[in-house]
Amino acid sequence: MNPPPEPARPPQSRQLPTHLRRFSTAERWAHRATALLTGVCVLTAACLYLPQLAQLVGRRALVVTLHQWTGAALPVPVLAALGSRALRADLGLLNRFGPHDRQWLRAVLRRDKRPSARPAHKFNAGQKLYAAWAAGATLVMLGTGLMMWFTHLTPLVWRTAATFVHDWLALTLGIVLAGHIGMAMGDPVARRGMRTGSVTRAWAEREHPLWQPEAEETRQPHRTPEPR
């Protein structure tokens, strides 16, 4: 006699992970190296322009040399990490501005703090604008800094204009960086995501609802494009 068939087992519900992968190792190290170089640039610039710090530190020639080489090396971490597919994909997302980003900005201007009023993909509109501004400011600072460094390559009027732009843009950059650090200090989950590469699912659903379904599918070979 044949044995009786086994009773059908109820289908098991798929357990969703409690954490989602947000940044790769290459992205995190590029961010850390860029932050370190930026910090050195800001500190050395402060020592060059504030008399109190200049007297305290001394060694002006050494500070100038450190500021010059650190500024010249500022784009290197991102350029070195371009071999990372994850970084290239994130740069593409940062360079893409959709209708949901405009809705996010309108909600910020109206001070509407409801999560439903601020739809965001992996990066919200504020992060995209900051990334674009930081990239442009870094290139301008690099170009004007090189004019001030290699004085024999440009005429005096160019160097004068470069000094004016470099100084005032440095002040603006310091203010924006302070705001960036303040925003990061107010969001411990986002800081942990940059430090460890992972964020909680609850945070992703609340802060980046349009990105969370795509983050689940990063475990699969197919990837859903960002909604336009």
Rank of each mutant, 00 (worst) to 15 (best):
D101Q: 05
L87Y: 08
L146T: 00
L129K: 00
Y130N: 00
G92A: 12
A86G: 13
R88G: 08
W104H: 10
T138G: 05
H100C: 13
V108I: 11
M147S: 03
L109M: 11
L146G: 01
G136W: 02
L139V: 07
R110C: 07
F123C: 04
A125N: 02
M148I: 06
G98F: 08
H121Y: 13
V108H: 09
R111N: 12
P115S: 10
L105N: 07
A107N: 12
A134D: 00
N95Y: 09
Y130V: 07
A120N: 02
P115F: 09
W133N: 04
R96D: 10
G143Q: 03
N124C: 12
K113D: 11
N95R: 14
R106I: 08
S84F: 06
A135D: 02
L87G: 07
A134G: 04
W104C: 08
A125W: 00
P115D: 02
G143S: 05
L142C: 04
L91R: 07
L93A: 15
R102T: 15
A120R: 01
L93N: 06
L93H: 13
L139G: 07
N124M: 02
H100L: 14
M141N: 05
R88H: 11
K122G: 05
S116T: 11
Y130R: 05
A134S: 11
G145Y: 00
R85K: 14
L91E: 07
N95T: 15
L129N: 03
T144Q: 05
A131K: 04
